[in-house]
């Protein structure tokens, strides 16, 4: 199901926001001008909806967000937790069409 979320420029570069997509909370990150990633907003470690508020980083080429509560890192492309191989959250396909961001999953 493809769904329009917001304008590209609604997200400041290097930060994240939360979208309500198909009744679910999805964290969307803008890493550079046109690089957008989406993963679950729910942090399985803290049980809070806060991953969108983490800091974006890079570890040996892998893009990640670090949870703002207890700092576990999640791969932005796959949802895999970098600090606990047993934990993986959902990642979502994103598209940019005419300066608008869509989730297509």
């Amino acid at each position: 199901m493809i769904e329009r979320i917001c304008k590209l420029n609604d997200i400041t570069i290097n930060t994240g926001v939360v979208a309500l997509y198909n009744e679910k909370q999805v964290a969307i990150f803008r890493v550079s001008d046109t690089e957008i990633y989406a993963i679950d907003n729910f942090d399985p470690f803290s049980h809070a909806n806060i991953l969108s508020r983490g800091i974006i980083g890079q570890d040996q080429g892998q893009l990640f967000v670090a949870s703002p509560l207890y700092k576990q890192r999640f791969n932005l492309q796959s949802g895999q937790c970098l600090d606990d191989e047993d934990v993986k959250i959902n990642a979502y396909e994103t598209k940019i069409i005419d300066q608008e961001i869509y989730i297509d999953a």
Partner: peptide
């Protein structure tokens, strides 16, 4: 400021102290 915002921990970003429930 736009170019500084992404550097801030969530506390500085939202100018408050995050608690366990967000």
């Amino acid at each position: 400021k736009d170019e500084l915002a992404g550097l801030q921990e969530t506390n500085d970003f939202f100018l408050g102290n995050i608690q366990k429930d967000g």
